[in-house]
Computed example of a mutant assay.
Amino acid sequence: MKTKAICAFVALSAALMSAACGVGDSAPEQSTDGSVKKVRVGVPANANGISAYIAARDFADDYGLQVEAVTIKSGAEAVPMLMNGQLDISLGDALGTLMASSNGVPVVVAGVASVASPDPTLDPSAIFVAGPDTGVTQLEGQTLAVSALGGAPELIARAGIDAAGGSSEHVNFVELNPAQMANSISSGRVKAGLAIEPFTTAASEAGLTEVLRPMATGYAELPVTVWFTSQKFAQTHRDTVESFLGAVQSAGVEANRDLPRARKTAGEFIEMDPRVLDAIRLPVFAENVTDVDSVEELVQLADRYDLFDKKPDLGGLLGQKFEAAAP
């Protein structure tokens, strides 16, 4: 399971040795009077970036920041950019960040960005089948598609199935492009699939049957995405990190409480049919971003499913103990 998920980080770790010795000494710019700190933040063009954009637009001034949002494809792409100084902080998949750390990449989790809600109505993930819902036990001995083997999608599916009384060890997991998920289930190519928004909404509209909301069932309260940075930046620019955490925490609270505003913000940086954007379940943003105890719980869950060759160094990963600055 874990080989495919970590292979990219093996090559990445080697590349970082040279990157860390390159232009990594660059630091965020500061205004001439020292009152405004400029911070470059890696943000993917999906709904997980909503709090970052609200922070940049509406809360940065309150925290003495000028936030430059840099579009990234994934947290894995952001890692070398953090190491060589092209980025200061980035949003990343929580499990992917842990895997990078377990492979020796010197990253630090500054805070939690979004979490899995225990409320199924807020869960952006779902396991679908084409026929009637006869419970998770129908998945045993069958093929279930996820978008990434050995990564967060498989972990979410396995934890949800087991928490619901099924047996994920008797399910055959395969990797499939999420855009192909609904058609593959409908055609019988696979028995079931795990969809995550916006593909959850697409699967529902295609008439597929929802079997389980796995995040709410087996992943509740665990981090889905995190804010992370390099160990060097965390040590030398602690005040900048804490100012950013304060701004993005305020933005996350606002996004959770004002969904129309959150959707409007998403529409400004996500290329998506407005009708779909209005229908999808949005992320639940952390309202206490520096409470990172849940990261340790995620490590325990991932280790239970044998995802790590070597467990992450939690001292290096979480040892900075940041506080979100006040405005």
Rank of each mutant, 00 (worst) to 15 (best):
S101L: 03
T225V: 06
A159H: 01
L98W: 04
T290K: 13
A56T: 03
S168V: 04
F269L: 00
L314K: 14
G188R: 12
V248G: 15
Q235M: 08
L65W: 10
A69R: 09
K321T: 08
L91M: 15
A27R: 11
R158Y: 06
R257V: 12
R57S: 13
F233N: 05
K311I: 14
V174A: 15
V174R: 15
G131H: 09
G188Y: 05
G218F: 02
V174M: 15
D309F: 15
D133G: 14
P198W: 06
P327T: 09
V241F: 10
G315A: 09
N103T: 12
A55F: 12
A192P: 10
K38S: 14
G193N: 08
A69T: 13
A159T: 00
W227S: 04
V10E: 05
T134N: 11
A56N: 03
V289M: 14
F59T: 07
L91V: 15
S90V: 06
V67H: 05
Q142F: 08
A94H: 12
E323R: 13
N256C: 15
T143G: 05
T217A: 10
V10Q: 06
P120T: 04
E205M: 13
F128L: 07
G92D: 07
V36D: 04
S125P: 02
T143F: 14
P44W: 02
V224G: 13
D62R: 10
L298I: 04
V146A: 09
A110G: 04
E68F: 11
I6S: 03
E68D: 14
D313G: 13
A15S: 11
G141W: 02
T3I: 03
A179P: 12
E77I: 01
Q142N: 09
G267L: 00
Q235K: 09
C21F: 12
G22Y: 06
A251K: 12
M1S: 07
E268P: 00
A262C: 09
A164G: 06
E205I: 11
A47K: 03
T134H: 07
C7G: 10
F322H: 11
G252F: 13
S147V: 02
M99K: 09
R213F: 08
A76K: 00
G150F: 01
M83Q: 00
P327C: 12
L298N: 08
L82P: 04
T71Q: 10
M81R: 02
Q300L: 12
T32E: 13
V284C: 15
A11G: 13
L139T: 09
I161A: 01
G188L: 07
A302D: 11
T265M: 01
E29A: 13
E323L: 07
K2N: 12
A76I: 02
A324G: 08
A159V: 00
T265R: 01
D162Y: 00
V224L: 10
S125L: 05
F322M: 11
A247E: 09
S18E: 11
V136R: 05
F59N: 08
E77M: 04
A202D: 08
A326H: 14
